[in-house]
Amino acid sequence: MESLLSFARGPLFRLCLMVMLLGLARILFLDLWEAYRAYRRAGDRKMPWRLIARRSFEWIVPVKRLSRDPQLYSIASILFHVGLIVVPIFLFAHIDLWKSGIGISWPALSFRWALWLTISTIFFAAVLLIERLFVKSIHSLSRGQDYFWLVLLLFPFVTGFVCANVKISAGLYEFLMIVHVLSGDLIFLLIPFTKIAHCVLAPFSQVIDALAWKFPPATDQDILETLNRNH
């Protein structure tokens, strides 16, 4: 158990972290590179930059979305994101691992804040899951990975919460810790290859969206050719 745990938070963690960091850099590079190529090829290169900037800002700072339908889902989603990002980065125990590992540290959340943010993240994840399952309009837009990610994200939060706050035996603690670390590793590993890549791609989504309508000359021929081939 001990060796599995040290493997999961040693070499395996480094592997997954690097796949995540470089994978995100890669997907961002590919995204922007292809956008640039599309722009170069485009027949009409006029871009509504001002509108794109405004929309991008609205997506990154989603204050306006709070009042939009489905309202409950929007609010839950935003609060869920707060805990999801803040807790893993600013948790004392995590910072301590960084400090003992490579000697860097930063200010930590207090015990009370960490506790309540964890509870809120778990709660809002549950709200989102229920809404995805039972609200028809949201359900119809949901894919398999939307459910999968919500459930997967619950694993490290629930296990971490139990390990940090509940008096449990050493054996159970170890088991939960292994689940905690392994699920965290899996999350890192999957981030750049699934929808969670939006954590770096989101700021550019509006640019890409606008570029998608800039077709290169003679695209119609390509489309016809492709469709014919597809038939």
Binding site: P11, L15, V19, L22, F29, L30, G101, G103
Partner: peptide
């Protein structure tokens, strides 16, 4: 695109494996 995609993916994966293989212990730091 797919050539570039594959090459960068190969780089990312083997870089990560390299990071896993090297020792990350404090004394090495």
């Amino acid at each position: 695109t797919s050539a570039l995609t594959r090459h960068t993916l190969a780089f990312v994966i083997s870089f990560a494996i390299g990071m896993a293989l090297i020792s990350g212990r404090k004394l090495h730091a």
